[in-house]
């Protein structure tokens, strides 16, 4: 009987350890937090999303507050529609805030950066961000730079 006890206790410990490891990995090493928890949806329209993709972070002052959950082209506005999922903790973002598609480092991943406006109303589920700034396309930029250089060199 005593042997059986040890066996059961050891098995219990094993299962406990395994479940603890699962829980730890899921919550501490992944972006589970920003998926779980409650959040609200906001839309933004851009002329060009560049290399932005679903799952890219949404940052406010460099802090990740949500993720991009949808990118599609709107045939009514002829603009790219981007859906943002923002955590409920950040429910006091002014309605006239600006959303910009920025790049981490020179060639890094693209993300959405919000810069707060000054309106007394806040973004809420279903609202649209009106002020947007499209992705900077490096080719265009280089092209412009070269034309400018050409003109000034004349």
């Amino acid at each position: 009987m005593r042997q059986i006890r040890t066996l059961e206790v050891t098995t219990g410990l094993f299962v406990l350890l395994g479940v603890a490891a699962l829980f730890y990995l899921a919550t501490q090493t992944t972006n589970y937090r920003s998926y779980g928890g409650r959040s609200y949806r906001v839309r933004a329209f851009f002329n060009n999303v560049g290399g932005l993709h679903v799952g890219a972070p949404v940052r406010l002052g460099g802090v990740t507050i949500g993720r991009v959950n949808l990118i599609r082209y709107s045939m009514t506005r002829y603009q790219a529609e981007v859906g943002l999922l923002i955590s409920d903790h950040y429910d006091k973002i002014p309605a006239d805030s600006t959303a910009a598609i920025l790049t981490q480092g020179v060639l890094g991943e693209q993300y959405i950066g919000l810069s707060p406006g000054g309106a007394p109303t806040f973004l809420h589920n279903g609202s649209t961000i009106h002020f947007t700034q499209s992705a900077i396309i490096l080719e265009n930029l280089l092209g412009q730079l070269l034309t400018h250089a050409g003109h000034s060199g004349k």
């Binding site: 990995l25 899921a26 090493t29 992944t30 972006n31 589970y32 998926y35 990740t64």
Partner: peptide, 11 residues
């Protein structure tokens, strides 16, 4: 870790 690792597609 939290930025790179996705709950669904990785874990």
């Amino acid at each position: 870790m939290r930025h790179e690792v996705r709950f669904h597609s990785d874990f």
